[in-house]
Design a protein around this nucleic acid. Structure first.
Lengths: 346, 346
DNA sequence: TTGTACGCGTTATCAA
DNA sequence: TTGATAACGCGTACAA
């Protein structure tokens, strides 16, 4: 087992100084052709590579990006990571991932682990608990230390930084308008509690679409699911809540759900209640993931373009990292949504 | 904007030496109570944290783990990452993710970026292209340099290192036996080409189960899908291949598929051909993901326990990193599968 | 009780 | 053409 070779070892072996080796390896023409070749041959033989950590220390740049997200077993978030990784890698950056698990404490701890030199900047999406507590000191402190942050999807006005967001409002509106156009008269909304802003914006889009088409929103058609600790794997009583909604308002002929799982579950309940999709009931979800694509019937969804969001976030961050002078001007990029029509709508 | 504080700055400010500050901060009783308090107060005020990079350079330990996987937008792999992150974080390690995108070159490049000091060890699952080319030099070179590797799921005999694998053979066997027990007489297999070993092992499990129950395997009931560049989002002609299978052998009354998508697609085709599930056709998939859970009817699957695999891999790796003396003995841990019964079987 | 010196691996500057 | 030195930030053995 040959340990990693360092400049020092090469220098010793070849009986020259460390700096000579360093220069020779960078083809500096300060060094004679002779020694250059000798050194390079030796380096190749021993597969010399400069130590990243030493370089980071010297350059005060790590060439790595820290990502903090609420969960990774989640289609949207993994698409975003893919986008970040793609762009970052092309620029020679690595990507280090921390999971907050929707917990405030883990978010803080994770950022803490990375903030002390390990990375050059953060890309993050805020955990639900943090949104609930409205405690953002860890973000502002990080920024104050001169470390750039780019937030995506779950962002917050209180913090001044670059942001990449989905047009939740317009996306939701588009979806509901589609339902209106296909003659739905009683459109229900299945959404989250208001403290998750993406849920809130989508709710607003729903309301706006109704109003523009002179349909009066009816509170009893709006189901706000309490998804405390509700994940893809813990559906709680989602199903029964939706069933109750459908039973209390059997006139419902259209459903807009703010995520895939809600939408799929609505379809499942509809089937149970013998409602035909899309004849008796049309359904549209948000987030275009595996579920929508493979559902039977295929679920019409609002696609968020997660990968594009990741790429854009990485672009903004690397721009900030590499150009000190742009540091003070922040932008919010809105990534357009797209309605992907499948068989759950007419 | 206050830049990061270093020992040096504190020392200068307080007019003491750097080492005094260093010792004071670690509560060394070499230092007088007086200066200790003074230093600590100052450090707290300026929120001093030791620079990770400097520590890494000094200790020759980065306390970070490199993960190289074929893709991240994939339920199983993201479960594994979650498991790794969980265990690693508890041990004070960070996790850096590289995606090979099933490409040999990207796998090599990614490992190359990390191998020079950025991490203490690798956890990885081999890309399809690498398996096809059977070129494993980048793994052996890494190991030769003294960097530990733990492989999971897609592993390879040629490389001597710790491994965590799913019991693909037994898992598949269990699944097929379930079908046999529920009276299936003509059990089809939908699998991948043989160079993906997990596909190969699952195929062997299928064959073994049939033989043990004195059912002669019929080649025409085995569909080997060529999933060159086939992902969750590019289903190619999977559907038509399966349709052809069902039409040519209408007696098929059970299907075992080596992944979720194949299984779900089989159900979709069955529905199209007016086969009732599970009455006319029973289906079992491999990998317990979102699709299986939300499918209608729910898909019976062989769960791989991705998170447990990740945790175990992290445990093995950290053990190797922290105990030089265990370096030479390698183990292969088999994580048991579990048959999760839902409505697609009787 | 405090400070000096050294080393981790690298590069850049300046001297020889 | 080559080499010595300093610096990045930290910890520690040893000297004062």
């Amino acid at each position: 087992m040959k340990r990693k070779v360092t400049l020092k070892q090469i220098a010793k072996e070849l009986d020259v100084s460390i700096s000579t080796v360093s220069k020779a390896l960078k083809n500096s023409k300060e060094i004679s052709e002779d020694t250059r070749e000798k050194v390079q041959a030796f380096a190749k033989l021993y597969n010399y590579r400069p130590n990243n950590i030493a370089l980071s220390l010297k350059n005060r740049k790590t060439k790595t990006i820290g990502i903090i997200i609420p969960e990774i077993v989640h289609h949207f978030f993994s698409m975003v990571i893919q986008g970040i990784e793609l762009y970052a890698n092309n620029k020679g950056y690595n990507v280090i991932v921390g999971l907050s698990n929707e917990s405030f404490d883990k978010e803080v701890i994770n950022m803490d682990m990375l903030v002390n030199g390990s990375i050059d900047g953060f890309i993050l999406s805020i955990s639900k608990e943090t949104l609930l507590l409205q405690d953002y000191h860890h973000f502002s402190e990080t920024i104050n230390q001169g470390m750039p942050i780019v937030m995506f999807d779950r962002v917050v006005n209180e913090i001044d930084c670059d942001k990449v967001i989905v047009d939740d409002f317009e996306g939701a509106k588009k979806a509901v308008e589609k339902l209106v156009k296909t003659k739905c008269k009683h459109i229900a909304l299945i959404t989250t509690k208001d403290y998750v802003n993406v849920g809130r914006f989508r709710t607003q889009g729903y309301l706006s679409a109704l109003e523009e088409h002179h349909m009066t929103p009816r509170p009893e058609l709006i189901l706000k699911v309490d998804d405390e600790a509700l994940t893809e794997y813990n559906l709680g009583n989602l199903e029964s809540e939706i069933e109750q909604l459908f039973k209390e308002s059997p006139e419902i002929d259209g459903v807009f759900a703010v995520n895939e799982v809600y939408a799929i579950t609505a379809m499942k309940v509809a089937r149970k209640l013998n409602k035909q999709i899309p004849e008796d009931l049309q359904v549209i979800g948000f987030t275009d993931g595996v579920l929508s694509k493979h559902a039977i019937p295929g679920l019409t969804t609002v696609s968020q373009h997660g990968q594009r969001i990741g790429e854009k976030a990485a672009e903004l961050l690397i721009e900030k990292i590499e150009n000190e002078d742009v540091a003070e001007r922040f932008q919010t990029v809105i990534v357009e949504t797209e309605l992907i029509e499948r068989e759950s709508t007419k």
